[in-house]
């Protein structure tokens, strides 16, 4: 399975980067989501894959052996929620920028750049 996850992470990053470079807000957001998914997948796989044994200590026991690695899971869990927060903020920005600037083409959102005309 490792090779599949590695390939999937590569696909997701490549597709995400490609979409982010498209210069349009909605595909950009799609790309962002894909890359954050890929990041979670990479962290998860880096903690090694253990088939089907969640890190839950059975009632009455003190410890557990051979369960899947709990540490990356804890890291990803918050990363997912934070990634969601970031995505939603980006969504709000995309929405607002379309409303204020009247465009979804990111290359036209350059009013603060030097050497370019406002809203050209």
């Amino acid at each position: 399975m490792e090779i599949m996850i590695a390939l999937l992470a590569g696909f997701l990053v490549a597709a995400g980067a490609y979409l982010m470079m498209s210069g349009k807000t909605l595909p950009y957001l799609f790309g962002l989501t894909m890359i954050s998914n890929a990041a979670n997948l990479i962290i998860f796989a880096s903690g090694r894959l253990t088939f089907g044994k969640p890190p839950l200590i059975p009632e009455g026991a003190h410890s557990i052996e051979g369960a899947s690695n709990a540490l990356p899971q804890a890291l990803i869990l918050t990363a997912i929620v934070i990634g969601f927060g970031l995505l939603v903020f980006a969504l709000a920005l995309a929405y607002r920028s379309y409303y204020v600037l009247g465009t979804t083409k990111m290359d036209h959102m350059n009013a603060s750049e030097p050497g370019t005309e406002v809203g050209s």
Binding site: F51, P55, L77
Partner: peptide, 11 residues
Amino acid sequence: IYGATDVAMTQ
């Protein structure tokens, strides 16, 4: 599949 129930639910 790989034992991350909490993460799966969150996802």
